[in-house]
Computed example of a mutant assay.
Amino acid sequence: MKRVFTSLVLLCIIGASAQQFNKEITTENGLQLLVGQINLEGLQSQPYGNWFQNRYESYHPDETMVNLFKEKLGEYNIKLFLGTWCGDSKRESPKFIKILEAADYPMEQLEIVALDYRKGHYKTSPTGEEKGMNIIKVPTIIFFKDGKEVNRIVESPLETLEEDITQIVFEKDYVPNYAY
């Protein structure tokens, strides 16, 4: 009996601390948003799938550039901060995901965080993943190596996503938009 009780307590603790993915909220004016940690299923669900799938399917990554960074990209963990309400996020995020897939990037090393749009919650997430990350524009794509930030792409690439990723993973002189 004691084992059963201990097991139940442990399961409750694990369940309470587990991250909820694809949390959806509706604003006062009826706009649906994803907030907090999300995954590809969330982006592919409706109404987000309307913009995500179309842009994802119509984008063709530059295979020559992808082949340049393909081997090195797996050395990085990546955090993608976006807004499902943001035009720049809607434009860049599907392309970025398609590039990662073309590079055979281990998707478990990608963390996607959707930020809020509402007044008083602007560019925040319910569990605070953005805190201390200096997120001023979305999308912001942050590349980490050995737990340390190496560089980021902010709002849009300087050249193309593929060229900017190449610059970052080969640790060239790359200064993102809105450098801090």
Rank of each mutant, 00 (worst) to 15 (best):
I165N: 06
R152F: 00
I153L: 02
Y174V: 06
D164C: 13
S125T: 04
Q167Y: 09
T124L: 13
P139T: 03
G128R: 10
T127V: 12
I165R: 06
S156P: 02
A179Q: 14
G132S: 07
F170R: 14
Q167C: 14
N177Q: 11
T140M: 07
T140I: 07
M133V: 09
K137A: 09
V175M: 08
M133D: 01
K131C: 06
L161N: 04
Y174K: 12
Q167S: 13
S125C: 06
R152V: 03
L161M: 09
F170M: 14
E155C: 04
D164G: 08
D173H: 15
D146Y: 05
Y180L: 15
S125H: 06
D164R: 08
T166C: 14
G128D: 09
E129C: 08
Q167A: 15
E130H: 06
R152S: 04
E162Y: 05
K172I: 03
K172M: 14
N151V: 04
F143Q: 01
S125P: 07
V138T: 04
P126H: 02
T166W: 09
K148S: 11
F170P: 09
I153G: 03
I136T: 15
E171N: 15
V138Q: 01
G147M: 10
S125Y: 02
V169G: 10
E130W: 05
S125G: 10
M133Y: 02
T160G: 04
I142P: 00
K137H: 07
I168Y: 01
K131N: 15
D164T: 03
E163I: 03
G128P: 06
E155A: 08
T160A: 07
Y180I: 12
K145P: 05
V138M: 06
P157V: 01
V175K: 15
I142Y: 00
A179R: 14
D146H: 08
V169C: 11
G128I: 01
T166R: 15
I168K: 04
D173Y: 11
R152W: 00
E171H: 09
F144D: 05
K137F: 10
L158R: 15
K131D: 12
P126W: 10
I141T: 08
I142V: 12
E163K: 12
K172E: 12
